[in-house]
Structure formats: structure tokens, C-alpha cells
């Protein structure tokens, strides 16, 4: 560092020239943020390899840094992990049971196995449990590069082992199930499912709970993690548990404000734009023919980042990047659904 040079201390032109070339430090500065201490690092072993990651990292994060691909279903970056699907479990030495990688933080000296026999069996059976009870055909749209079928193959999951699917429920039937005594299986060698008709009760989005894996994402996004509307919650218990509005009323009678944040976090396609649903029904939905344009919502001054998905020159759905510092992936009804005016513009 050069010697401190103070203005007014000299009139020597050389010195003045030097000052002009490198201005002196300002006498006072606005206070900056306190220095951020780099988090201490934690040493652990993953699949026998010594690893060092910052304190506070999850096992999932540490695995990711090692290039180990871990299946996840109920985990999304912009919501607190609920660790309920259990497809991400790993074996930690000293732990009686397997632990969820998505929520468990690393600890010094941890010895993690991500591909042991126990891990493979649990991941396989969990995928079979889901595959035999839920329609997973669209599961994974928020992580398009990792399809559930690839994982099923990796772990040798065969969802047909429990027998052919049982009878689907009639509309509203599952909404009325009471906790306690269920009607037990008859021994007809079928596997119970959550299949039921799609709930179509408004023009903006549909709810096909045949595809719901009960990952709690929509509930958390509607509630205290994003929207604070609390229009939906889990009702019932056990296999009869379901996402429900108050007293299972249709959406227009519920507290829903159609922000669509539940759609944005749903990993299974159970919640879907009506526009997408209609196109899928008529066979015109074609993701390969779609463009995605990132822009800013035109409505208010917040400046939410929106991604417009367009097909055949029409906006077919709107998402927001989960890593946007403005939205965290969440929008309101205007940004989410207020695009009809674009689609309806007069052709010039």
C-alpha cells in the first residue's frame, strides 16, 4: 500500500498529479455490512470419500457437490423441507433408521452411505408404494431432467408387485372419508389407489388429486411460507389423507385467491393451469414446441420475474424462477393468470 496522502498538505504539482491518479481514501464511509464469517467447514465421509462442506449444508447438498444424484420428490429449493416422501433417504452410521438427506444437516464425522443395500431397498419400495397408489405420469416437471421413471429403473422398482389397481373413487368420495375405521380390503388382490375424477371448478386451474403424492408443497406455499392465505390444508388421516379446502368446498367458495403458487411448487402435475389441462385433454400440449420468455410482470411496481411459456403464439402458462430474489418463485393472481389480454390481442 502507498503512503497516505492528505489533500491540502502540499501544493507540489507532482504530488497533486499523484493524488489525481489515485484518489485518497475517503475520510468517512457509510457503515458497510458487518464482515461475514465464512461458515466453518464440516468434515464427513460420503460413500467412503472424505468430504468437506460448509456447516449448515444438508446431506443432499453435500451429495450434490460430490456429483451424487439423489432422488427427491417433496423437496424444492424455495420451501422449507418437510421430509415426508422419504425417497431421498440415506444410511448414516450409528443411526437406527435411515435419514432424509433433504433436511438432515451434515455433522462432523458423519459416515453417509447413499447406495447401500438398505438405501436401495427403501428407495425402491417407496417408489413402488407411490407408483402403485398415485398416477406419477407427470411427476417431476419442476426437475425435468430427472424423471421418476429413470429412478424406478435405477432401483428396480416394480409397482405392479402389489397387484392391479383397485377401483377408483367416485367424485368427492375420498373427501368424505372419516378417520378411524376404514372398510378393509376384501382380499380381491388389488392395490388401493387415490384415483378419482379431476376437480374442475374454476377457469384458472384444475386439481387432479389422482396425481397427488401428498408432499405438502402446495399447503406450505399457500400458507406461511409464501402466500399466507391458508386456503388448503391436509384433511383426513393415513391413506385417506388428502389436500382439501375448508369442508372440501369447491375452490370458488373457498378462501383461495388464485395466486397459483401451489401450482408453481407442485411436483406431480396434480395442480395444473386450466389452459394446460385443456390442451393436454385435446392432445395439443407440446412442450417441445414451446418457448419460455423471461420478463417482468407488467402489473405493479414490485417487478416480479415471470417466465412466459408460449405455444403457437399464445401464452399457455406462467411461472416464476425459484431463484428470483424478488419472487422466490411465487406470484399473485395478476402475474400468474393475467395474460389473457395478450392472447386476445387483435390480430393486426
Amino acid at each position: 500500500m502507498t503512503d497516505q496522502v492528505t489533500p491540502n498538505a502540499t501544493s507540489d504539482p507532482d504530488v497533486l498529479a499523484a493524488i489525481l491518479r489515485s484518489p485518497p481514501a475517503r475520510a468517512s464511509r457509510p457503515p458497510g455490512p458487518p464482515p461475514v464469517e465464512a461458515p466453518a467447514s464440516v468434515e464427513l465421509t460420503i460413500d467412503g470419500v472424505a468430504v468437506s462442506v460448509p456447516d449448515g449444508t444438508t446431506i443432499l447438498g453435500a451429495c450434490g457437490e460430490q456429483g451424487i444424484d439423489t432422488p427427491t420428490l417433496c423437496y424444492v429449493e424455495n420451501l422449507t423441507p418437510v421430509n415426508v416422501c422419504r425417497v431421498c433417504v440415506v444410511e448414516v452410521a450409528g443411526s437406527r433408521v435411515l435419514v432424509p438427506a433433504c433436511s438432515r444437516k451434515v455433522e462432523a464425522g458423519m459416515d453417509v452411505q447413499t447406495d447401500s443395500e438398505r438405501v436401495r431397498l427403501s428407495r425402491k419400495v417407496v417408489l413402488e408404494f407411490l407408483g402403485s397408489s398415485v398416477d406419477l405420469s407427470l411427476t417431476g416437471p419442476i426437475t425435468p431432467d430427472r424423471s421418476i421413471a429413470a429412478y424406478a429403473q435405477r432401483y428396480g422398482a416394480d409397482a405392479t408387485r402389489f397387484g392391479p389397481p383397485g377401483q377408483p373413487s367416485a367424485a368427492g368420495e375420498r373427501d368424505r372419508l372419516e378417520s378411524g375405521h376404514h372398510h378393509g380390503p376384501t382380499g380381491d388382490a388389488t392395490a388401493a389407489t387415490v384415483a378419482q375424477p379431476t376437480k374442475i371448478d374454476n377457469e384458472l386451474y384444475v386439481r387432479d388429486y389422482s396425481k397427488c403424492i401428498l408432499c405438502y408443497k402446495c399447503v406450505d406455499a399457500c400458507g406461511e411460507e409464501a402466500q399466507n392465505t391458508f386456503a388448503i390444508a391436509v384433511a383426513g388421516r393415513g391413506f385417506d389423507a388428502r389436500i382439501s379446502t375448508e369442508s372440501a368446498v369447491p375452490l370458488p367458495e373457498s378462501a383461495c385467491v388464485y395466486c397459483g403458487n401451489c401450482i408453481g411448487v407442485c411436483p406431480t402435475g396434480a395442480l395444473m393451469f386450466k389452459s394446460e389441462y385443456d390442451m393436454r385433454e385435446s392432445g395439443t400440449w407440446d412442450e417441445s414446441a414451446q418457448t419460455v420468455t423471461d420478463t417482468i410482470c407488467p402489473y405493479c411496481g414490485v417487478g416480479c420475474a415471470v417466465s412466459l411459456h408460449a405455444q403457437d403464439d399464445r401464452i399457455v402458462k406462467v411461472t416464476s424462477p425459484t431463484d428470483s430474489s424478488v419472487t422466490d418463485g411465487h406470484l399473485c393472481i395478476k402475474g400468474r393468470f393475467g395474460f389473457e389480454f395478450v392472447n386476445n390481442r387483435p390480430k393486426v
Binding site: 427403501s122 419400495v125 417407496v126 408404494f129 402403485s132 378411524g180 388421516r237 393415513g238 391413506f239
Partner: peptide, 18 residues
């Protein structure tokens, strides 16, 4: 167990049925 499972996690929610 099928009746009393809280339904939160997949292994117990579906496993108790299977």
C-alpha cells in the same frame, strides 16, 4: 396401523395399506 397412520410419510401411509 392402517387406521392410525397419520399419513404424513409415504412408507407408513402406503405401506400400512399394502
Amino acid at each position: 396401523f392402517r387406521d392410525e397412520s397419520c399419513g404424513q410419510c409415504v412408507p407408513c401411509r402406503v405401506g400400512s395399506v399394502r
